[in-house]
């Protein structure tokens, strides 16, 4: 079990005052799936006129807030303490064949099955594609257990796609990423989702944080990155298994989950609209301090 203290600061600075700003946040770590939310504080400056919270369709906590006073800077800092304890998933564990899962997903929709079934469908940013199918099916011969197949696919994505923050933008599509074979965690997650879904498997997009190490002493890195992204695959009796294609690993206790959805659009940590503002600059700092218990 690992306990984390998280500080995630998002700051927008504007060259001209912003008259009005309306935003929604998905910045609260989830309180389920091997993860316990112990403490939580959200601080926003300038102080919002209104702030409300709700659970969305995927049970993520969404915070809405509006700022009506003119401001040149908007700072959202989210503090949280989370306890993570997930079972270890190993390659050698027995798992059902992937094609039997595809049938099972389709057949079992009367209860909770319906909710999971939706993750096998194309979504705006993670579509089903012939190119994704061709790429994925090489690791998914008929009858192969899902675990080794998924491990292999994730490893291949990790190897074939170069992590390159300059290659893509937020609007880059999966076919483009396939063409460039480059991208960031978000792109790699969408690629993996397109692969799984093109096969008929159910997989979701996960946003959150990952613990990073600076050197062999494994000292934690402060302000490493913005939030991270990976995928979660439904594996029958094993439940949902999180794979991180960027780091080529199965998620255990190094990751903290913020939100789950069909793709980035469902989980976008900060999204908003504003009027005025001129030039805007964005800076994000994430700090993840582990306290092994």
């Amino acid at each position: 079990m690992t306990r984390y203290k998280i500080k995630h600061t998002t700051a927008y600075r504007y060259s001209e005052p912003v008259a009005l700003s309306q935003n929604q946040l998905r910045l609260t770590p989830r309180n389920r799936g091997g993860q316990k939310l112990l403490r939580r504080r959200l601080r926003i400056t300038p102080k919002p006129e209104m702030i409300t919270h709700r659970r969305d369709y995927f049970a993520n906590l969404v915070s809405h807030f509006d700022v009506y006073e003119p401001h040149g800077e908007l700072v959202i800092s989210s503090h949280a303490e989370v306890e993570v304890s997930r079972p270890l998933i190993e390659l050698k564990m027995p798992s059902p064949s992937w094609d039997s899962l595809v049938h099972q997903l389709k057949a079992d929709i009367t209860g909770n099955g319906l909710h999971r079934y939706q993750f096998s469908f194309a979504s705006a940013l993670a579509p089903k594609l012939p190119i994704a199918y061709e790429y994925a099916v090489r690791s998914f011969p008929k009858g192969r257990p899902i675990l080794p197949a998924a491990f292999e696919l994730i490893e291949r994505i990790h190897k074939d796609f170069v992590y390159d923050p300059t290659a893509t933008t937020v609007t880059t599509t999966v076919p483009e990423v396939f063409q460039k074979k480059r991208g960031v965690c978000q792109d790699l997650a969408h690629v993996a989702l397109s692969c799984f879904r093109s096969l008929g498997l159910a997989a979701s997009y996960v946003s959150g944080y990952v613990r990073t190490y600076s050197d062999e002493n494994q000292a934690e890195l402060v302000g490493a990155d913005a939030s991270h992204a990976w995928v979660s695959l439904f594996a029958g009796p094993l439940g949902w298994i999180d794979f991180d294609p960027t780091n080529n690993l199965v998620v255990q206790n190094e990751h903290v989950v913020l939100a789950v959805g069909r793709d980035y659009r469902d989980v976008c940590p900060v999204n908003g609209l504003f009027i005025g503002g001129g030039q805007q600059t964005l800076s994000v700092a994430v700090q993840l301090k582990p306290e092994t218990v």
Binding site: D56, Y57, I109, G111, L114, Y117, Q118, F121, D266
Partner: peptide, 27 residues
Amino acid sequence: PQRLVKSGEVPADFLFSHPAFRRDFHG
């Protein structure tokens, strides 16, 4: 509650492939 979807009267595949079915309209 999506009972019609669970019972298949409204096929799940129809609903989940529907571009106008937005989860945001729930609640």
